[in-house]
Simulated assay, not measured.
Amino acid sequence: MMEWINDFGWILWLTVFLLLAVAEMLTLNLYFILMSVGALAALVGFLFHAPLWLQIILFAVVALATTVLIRPLALAHLRRGPADQLSNIDRLIGHQAVVLETVGTNTGLVKIGGDVWTARIRSGADIPVGAGVEVSAIEGATAIISAPSTHKASGTPATTA
């Protein structure tokens, strides 16, 4: 077995690299890709005829160093952006909506812009069809709406589903 590893260790390190790269594609957390850099370092060690124990140390040291030193910088770079930059869902908060199906604490439908959303209220009386409301939060695929605004919503007439 050791003779095979000494002759074809590059296959071992290349396989480790590819498995770690695939694991990174499945998780997207920047751990496995940095560990795969350690496998590449061990592969380079093999190509320079380093003994197996040195290849393993190269793998461990490079994987640990890249995880400790590069991962925080990469995450900071990925998260960098203006504080007021909102996701598409966050942009809906505060928008006016029209009730299409009576909205209660468990169910209902509203039209926000041109899209129909499931909706609910946190508490209080049901909101009738045609009422103008405001989106106060988005939880999953459900709009949490607040009590009717002071004016009736304009636009297309409300219909029930």
Results as ranks from 00 to 15, higher is better:
G81W: 14
L109F: 07
L86Y: 11
G132N: 04
F32I: 09
W13V: 07
W13P: 08
G130F: 13
V110K: 13
P82T: 09
E24V: 10
A141R: 00
V68I: 04
R79C: 09
Q96K: 14
L28F: 09
W13Y: 11
W13F: 11
M2N: 11
L14S: 11
V62G: 02
I11Q: 05
I70F: 06
A141E: 06
K111L: 15
V133T: 13
F59Q: 00
I56V: 01
V110C: 10
A21R: 02
T107G: 04
N88E: 06
I89S: 13
V99C: 13
A83C: 00
D7E: 13
A65M: 06
L34V: 03
L100R: 14
S87M: 10
V110Q: 15
F17V: 03
D84E: 09
M1E: 10
L20H: 02
L14T: 07
E134W: 08
G113K: 13
I127K: 08
E101P: 12
A97W: 13
A39K: 04
T107F: 15
F59E: 04
N88M: 12
L34Q: 03
P72V: 03
F32D: 02
V133S: 12
Y31T: 12
A137Y: 12
L12Q: 08
L40Y: 03
A23G: 11
I56M: 09
G113F: 05
L64G: 00
A74P: 01
M2Y: 08
A131C: 15
F17I: 07
E139W: 09
A141P: 04
Q55E: 05
A74V: 11
T107W: 11
I127L: 02
L43A: 03
F48K: 14
L19K: 01
T105M: 15
T105C: 03
L14P: 01
S36W: 04
T15L: 14
A60N: 01
E3G: 14
V61K: 08
L19Q: 00
W4C: 09
W4P: 05
I93Q: 07
A125P: 00
F32N: 14
V133C: 09
L86T: 10
W10M: 13
P82H: 07
